[in-house]
Simulated scan of single mutants.
Amino acid sequence: MSKITIVAKITIKEEFTNEVYPLLVDLHTSTLENDDGFIQYDLHKDLDNKNSFIFIETWENNEFLEIHMKKEHFQLFVKNTENKLENLEITKLEKI
C-alpha cells in the first residue's frame, strides 16, 4: 500500500484563537509521542493569516492514518474544537 500525505488547513474563528492554538500544539505533540506509522507530522503557521495553521503529514499507509484518527488525542482535539473553526480543509494525497 502507498504512503499517504495529508494537508490539513485549519482556520480558527478569531474569538477562539487563544483557546484552540494550544490544542493544535497538544495534538502535534501527542501524535509524535504516541502514534506509529507517521513519516512526517509537521504543524505550520500561515504567515499571512494568524488564525490559520497547516498540518503536513506523511503516513506509511492508510491503516496508520485510520488508527491515528481513532486515537484518544485526535478524538479529543475534534471534540474540543467543535464550532470553533472557521474552516477545515483536508486534502488526502498519494504520491505518483
Rank of each mutant, 00 (worst) to 15 (best):
M1N: 09
S2N: 09
K3H: 11
T5G: 02
I6K: 05
I6V: 14
V7G: 04
V7K: 08
K9Q: 14
T11P: 03
T11V: 09
I12K: 01
K13D: 07
K13A: 06
E14S: 13
E14L: 10
E15Y: 03
E15D: 09
E15N: 11
E15M: 05
F16K: 08
F16N: 10
T17Y: 03
T17F: 09
N18W: 02
N18C: 02
N18S: 13
V20R: 00
V20E: 01
Y21K: 15
L23H: 05
L23C: 10
L23A: 09
H28C: 04
T29S: 05
L32N: 02
D36S: 15
D36Y: 12
G37K: 08
F38P: 00
Q40K: 14
Y41S: 05
Y41N: 04
L43Y: 01
L43W: 06
L43D: 03
H44M: 12
H44P: 00
K45C: 15
K45I: 07
K45V: 08
D46W: 06
N49Y: 10
N49M: 13
K50G: 01
K50S: 11
S52E: 14
S52M: 09
I54G: 01
I56E: 06
E57C: 04
E57I: 08
W59I: 05
N61P: 12
N61H: 09
N62K: 15
N62A: 13
E63S: 14
E63F: 12
L65F: 10
H68C: 02
H68F: 03
H68L: 02
M69P: 03
K70I: 01
K71V: 03
H73N: 10
H73F: 11
F74Y: 12
F74P: 00
Q75Y: 10
F77L: 09
F77M: 07
K79E: 15
N80V: 03
N80L: 15
E82C: 05
K84Q: 13
E86R: 06
N87D: 14
N87V: 02
L88Q: 11
L88Y: 10
E89L: 05
E89W: 00
I90R: 04
T91G: 03
K92M: 10
K92P: 01
E94P: 00
E94S: 08
E94F: 02
K95H: 14
K95P: 06
